[in-house]
């Protein structure tokens, strides 16, 4: 099968493109998202939330290419056999591309690795997500934007999960750029319109040395079930994930959903929806 733009062999089916045209198509899509949603201003100081996985590594590479100076910020949750491997990949990548890397760990910052926490409690994704968000925001202070590797699949899953759980107030997070809230560094998602498969193909074609490995705790997550439903549906209805995102963006504009006002945690002074934030509550519960 040939590329729809030239006589070379296609390496991707939808769209039908050869290696060079696919790389151009992918980079243009990311660049267009940055422009269309005004994700970056010329002099923005940008930190990229990195895991060493394919998505955040792609964002790191492309923001360095499009925007110039960026810093990689990684959180080591302490997941043996997973995060230690992906962080090694990230260190090598940053060294090769001359990018500053800052790593902060659950162990140093909240007292325990995720592996150890899970001996006391279940719900790995909820614990991990709470601490990761807290630490990323804390260590991104002083930057204008945190860029994350959220792709189209992640975002469509998030929309569906929030609807299923009735968390409509969280739907505004499913945007290429989050709103400005005092105490939070704004998040941007340059891969918002790139499917997980497109990102993986780009990484493979660019020969980035990242492992395609999954978090060992993922099987237990609600997200995983939603991912399977969406991927099965996409086989029958092309573009269903893209439709979810476009409709969500349209609805958000019309509804203008207001986010609850934030208070500030009485313990750590970070933004919180309750007197003591979820992070401080969790830290106390592990003591």
């Amino acid at each position: 099968m040939l590329c729809s733009k030239c006589k070379e062999k296609a390496v991707f089916l939808s769209p039908k493109l050869c290696k060079n045209h696919f790389v151009d198509y992918f980079e243009k899509k990311v660049f267009d998202t940055i422009k269309k949603f005004n994700l970056l201003k010329k002099n923005d100081k940008v930190v990229v939330a990195c895991s060493g996985g394919k998505d955040s590594t792609t964002v790191l590479y492309l923001l360095k290419k499009f925007h110039g100076n960026v810093v990689a910020l990684a959180i080591d949750e302490g997941i043996r056999g997973y995060r230690d491997k992906t962080l090694l990949d990230l260190e090598r990548f940053c060294k090769k591309h001359d990018i500053e890397l800052r790593v902060h760990s659950f162990k140093d910052e909240v007292g325990k690795t995720l592996d150890r926490m899970l001996k006391q409690k279940n719900h790995p994704c909820s614990i991990c997500g709470t601490f990761r968000r807290y630490l990323l925001n804390k260590h991104a202070k002083g930057f204008d934007k945190i860029a994350t590797g959220h792709n189209m699949d992640d975002e469509a899953q998030a929309v569906l999960m929030n609807l299923l759980k009735g968390n409509t107030g969280l739907l505004w997070n499913s945007n290429p750029i989050t709103r400005k809230v005092k105490g939070f560094v704004q998040k941007i998602k340059p891969l918002y319109f790139c499917s997980e498969k497109e990102v993986a193909a780009y990484v493979l074609l660019k020969s980035f040395e990242v492992g395609f490995i999954e978090c060992p705790y993922m099987e237990e997550s609600f997200r995983n079930k939603v991912r399977d439903v969406l991927n099965d549906d996409e086989l029958k209805h092309k573009c269903s994930k893209l439709n979810i995102l476009n409709k969500n963006l349209e609805l958000l504009k019309k509804l203008d959903l207001k986010r609850k006002d934030f208070r500030y945690c009485s313990d750590c002074r970070e933004p919180s929806q309750s007197r003591v934030c979820k992070t401080c509550q969790l830290i106390k519960s592990f003591k």
């Binding site: 895991s51 996985g53 394919k54 998505d55 790995p124 994704c125 991990c128 992640d154 997980e196 498969k197 990102v199 993986a200 493979l204 395609f212 490995i213 999954e214 978090c215 060992p216 705790y217 993922m218 997550s221 997200r223 991912r227």
Partner: peptide, 8 residues
């Protein structure tokens, strides 16, 4: 056959 799913 390479999995495109990562993270968690």
């Amino acid at each position: 056959i390479l999995s495109v799913i990562s993270g968690g």
